[in-house]
């Protein structure tokens, strides 16, 4: 997946370097107490520990907002995998953040069905009104990150925008300021 994306050329999101170094703070284990119990319950659902990898990574991201290398190492230990294996899986899926993102993580669908309904204008309006200026770059106040995303599965309600866990449908450039105001 990453190979194809690199091949695409054009304007890209920032590199890991531009996101700065986030590993300086010591890692506090995620899987203790209630979170450990949650994982133990999940493990009863599958015949292998490995099958709980995606759910475990979701728990990490819910707790910490992103999945750091140290967190991957913790997941690896808990599920008896190697950190390299876990990183291989994390990097395959687009929804796990490998660096911190803005408090409001905004994903805009621009795939063909939304594209014909003006999704690119919605992206531009969001970049302008959040002050992000560029896709994938977090605004200076740490409030917003805007990215384009492939099909969100809400094509009949173009343009759908996802803010963290929340779906907002039928967004137009005109409704963008009100949408952002509702997040404050």
């Amino acid at each position: 997946m990453s190979a194809a994306r690199t091949e695409m050329g054009g304007e890209r999101g920032p590199s890991d370097l531009q996101h700065g170094l986030h590993e300086a703070t010591p890692h506090v284990p995620v899987f203790t107490g209630a979170r450990r119990a949650e994982l133990d319950e999940l493990l009863t659902r599958y015949p292998t520990k490995m099958a709980a990898l995606l759910p475990a990574l979701w728990i990490v991201q819910e707790e910490r907002g992103w999945v750091s290398s140290d967190a991957m190492a913790e997941v690896a230990q808990v599920l008896e995998l190697t950190p390299a294996y876990v990183k291989g899986v994390v990097s395959f899926y687009t929804m796990y953040h490998q660096h911190p993102v803005g408090r409001h993580f905004i994903q805009v669908c621009t795939t063909s069905p939304c594209n014909v309904c003006g999704a690119e204008d919605v992206v531009n309006a969001l970049l302008k009104h959040t002050g992000c200026e560029e896709l994938g770059v977090t605004s200076a106040d740490g409030r917003y990150t805007v990215i384009e995303v492939e099909c969100l599965g809400a094509c009949g309600f173009a343009t759908p925008v996802m803010v963290n866990e929340q779906f907002i449908e039928s967004v137009t450039p005109e409704t963008v300021p009100a949408l952002l105001a509702s997040l404050r």
């Binding site: 795939t111 063909s112 069905p113 492939e150 099909c151 599965g153 809400a154 094509c155 009949g156 309600f157």
Partner: peptide, 10 residues
């Protein structure tokens, strides 16, 4: 359900 244009299962 990820096929662009499809949102029935949702």
């Amino acid at each position: 359900e990820s096929e662009p244009g499809t949102f029935k299962d949702r």
